[in-house]
Amino acid sequence: MEALMVELKQAIIEALNLEEVTPEEIDNDAPLFGEGLGLDSIDALELIVLMEKKYGIKLKDAAEGRKIFQSIRVMADYIAQHRTK
């Protein structure tokens, strides 16, 4: 799980162009939206694309995304359970 969280942080940094953020600076349990990384609704769409492209997970319901994108740990848990690649 640790390795997956590090990989996920790196993928998010690249997908969202977080040039000045390193994986170490992202707290596994901090909220991704609002506080924490301060992501917004467009970032949520980018994360949905990332989930499908990198892990083969299709999120069809925006509400589902809201729960999954709570934090890096919650995302990594979900990916570990549902990934197809």
Partner: peptide, 10 residues
């Protein structure tokens, strides 16, 4: 490369 369903909205 990825098809129509995997495009970056930005």
């Amino acid at each position: 490369r990825d098809g129509e369903s995997l495009l970056s909205p930005t």
